[in-house]
Every structure is written in structure tokens, then in C-alpha cells.
Write a protein that binds this DNA or RNA. Structure first.
Lengths: 172, 172
DNA sequence: GTTATCCAGGATAAAATATATCTACGAATA
DNA sequence: TATTCGTAGATATATTTTATCCTGGATAAC
């Protein structure tokens, strides 16, 4: 029951990208610098976010990352699942069938009650994460975060973001 | 975001011990056999359950494990926390402070909004687990589980449980 | 008492996973 | 065409999980 560290980085990066203007992008190296992370490793996570359609990337000298959709359309659950994978935390390995008590496999067609209870709890967890949007995180930071910290973050974004001509490279 | 395998074993063992008569005990070796697990490793988990006051153990030739309190008083959350530990799955490492954006530590007295949202989700998870008691698991298994499987489990318990003289060794 | 059985706990090792880095490659822009 | 940047793969390191063994202590049966 532990989330990988990449989750924290992924959420912060997504929140940071929510602050860039319009269709501008921000290079992965700048994001790594912003949080003091190793660029080569952070790129892995940014890549996972891109694969999950949370971010989109533009190659080339003026390239970088930006949100693939509005910050209101991205939830914490989206980011967590992109990094952690979609499999539930509790995986029933049907331990019941492994001892000497086992009988025919037909006795185990019903899902284990323990498994059902664990999965129900995990649904509650995911539902709570799905209620929080990246835009909420950003808004809360702007409203209640320390003004100096917020100003510094904005300045950093301002300094590293790169305007783009086309609205979206993924538009066909 | 993965629960250790020991959780499944711990829940099954606790549920099994809920079926022994009165103050009888069941040796750890029998529990390991029931689920086809390595005895030496399962004992570690049973030990964790004992430390968490979920089980109690009696040494000696007629010893073994039994529930430390009624199955109605033990929830899935109790067992999960005993095995996984009580720390939350998401640990905010205050990544904000690590980049070049950082300013004085006084700017970070407020808890990170991301952290707050993640912890809130985890509270929902734990609340769902706390609603399920071991007695519920056992009752559901007896009522809806396959009759053959249930009968086999009962027979196994019957065969390995050991009556005790005193009600509880922990009573002072 | 003596012995046999059982749990507690430490040391240790193997396996799996997470973390981190590097390099070659492809895409896009100037 | 050269430069900048993301993509993907191979690979190394650290940490955690899983698993086993062994010593010691406690208890009941003999």
C-alpha cells in the first residue's frame, strides 16, 4: 500500500502545465529543474502521462509538453492511474484453492467475498480522487498558497513557456 | 499502489480463526497448510497480527493462535493496517521546496493541497474497510459460498483446533 | 525434571520492483 | 542541414518484498 514517488511529480507537473498560457508548451527539462528532479527519470513519467492522453508533446526546438485537455477535465484519478496503472491494489490470488481443502474448481466460481470488499473500498478511494480536478488544485494554490511561493511559480512558468503557432498538433 | 500479498493471507487466517470453537487455538502450521503457504513466512504475518492485538498466541505443545477479541470487533481495516502499517500510501515529500523556485521555509507552513486531497481519498478507502467486519466475511461465506467448500473448511478447522482450559492467557 | 511442541525474533538470502541514467533514434523547426 | 527536443530501449543501482533458517523462550505433556 504505497504509491510510487512518481505520482507526486506527475501531479505537480500537470498542475504546473495548467498554468501555461494558451497553447504554449514547456520543455521537460524545465519541469525537472522546477522540482529538482533528474530530467531523464522525470521524462519517463511525463511519457506515461502523454500515453494516457493527459499531456501532449511537441518535438523540435520549440517543443515541450502541455495539457492535452482543459485542467477542468483532468482529475487526480487520471494522473494516479496513468502512473500507477489501472490494476486494483488488492489482487485476490484465490488462496483458498491452494491448500489441501481444495475441491473442484466449480466450487470457486463465485468471487471471493474478501476480494469484493477490498475492491469496493478501492472504488471509494478512486471516487474520491475523481472528484478533485487539476483546476481545483491550481485554484486552491492561487487562493490559499503562500503569495511568495505562488508568485515564484508563476514567474518560473512565464520564463520557460514557449508560444506555439498551431492550436494543437494532435488535431486532425 | 499495491498491497502486499500478506494481506490476503492475514485476512483468510483471521477469518478461519473466527470459526474455531470458544477459546480453542489453531497452530500456525495448520493455517499455513490450509492455504498452501510457507509456514516460516506466514508466522511473520501472524506475528504482526498478534502485535496488533488482533490475534493472541499461546506457546507450548497445545498452543496456537486464536482471535484476541470477537470477530464482530475486528474489521478489514484492522487487519490491513496491521500488515501494511499505518502510514498513508501517499507521502508528500514537499517536492515544491526542492527546485530553484524555493524561498524561505516559512512559505511552506500550509500543507500542500495535493497532499490534502490524496489523504482525503485515503480516508475514504479506510472508512470503507472499517465498515466490513470479519464476522461479516465469515457469515457471507457460510451463506453464499459454495457448500462443499464451506464444509471442507469447517472440517479442516475442526480437525486442527485445540481446546484450551483457560479462557484467555492475556487476562490478568 | 525432561522432553516435545509451539511462538518470537533476528539474521540472512533471493526475487521483484522502483528509481535513475545513458544512448541511439525520430520528429520538427529554423 | 543542423539544432533542439521527445521516444524508446537497454542497463545499472537501490529499495522493498518475499522467503527461509536458526536460536531462544514459554508451556504443557510425559
Amino acid at each position: 500500500m504505497k504509491l510510487s514517488e512518481g505520482v507526486e511529480a506527475a501531479i505537480h507537473c500537470t498542475a504546473t502545465l495548467a498554468s501555461v498560457d494558451g497553447n504554449s508548451t514547456m520543455p521537460g527539462a524545465a519541469l525537472a529543474e522546477a522540482f529538482g528532479l533528474s530530467p531523464s527519470y522525470l521524462l519517463k513519467h511525463l511519457n506515461q502521462l502523454t500515453a494516457a492522453r493527459i499531456l501532449e508533446s511537441l518535438p523540435g526546438p520549440a517543443g515541450g509538453y502541455r495539457l492535452a485537455r482543459a485542467a477542468e477535465q483532468i482529475t487526480l484519478l487520471d494522473v494516479v492511474l496513468a502512473i500507477e496503472g489501472r490494476e486494483p491494489a488488492f489482487r485476490c490470488s484465490e488462496i483458498r484453492q491452494r491448500g489441501p481443502v481444495k475441491i473442484g474448481a466449480s466450487a470457486y466460481v463465485k468471487p471471493c467475498g474478501i476480494n469484493a470488499a477490498m475492491l469496493k473500498a478501492e472504488r471509494a478511494y478512486r471516487a474520491a480522487l475523481a472528484e478533485v480536478r487539476i483546476s481545483d488544485i491550481v485554484a486552491e494554490y492561487a487562493a490559499e498558497g503562500d503569495p511568495r511561493s505562488y508568485a515564484a511559480s508563476c514567474a518560473f512558468v512565464e520564463r520557460h513557456q514557449r508560444p506555439q503557432k498551431s492550436a494543437s498538433s494532435k488535431q486532425i
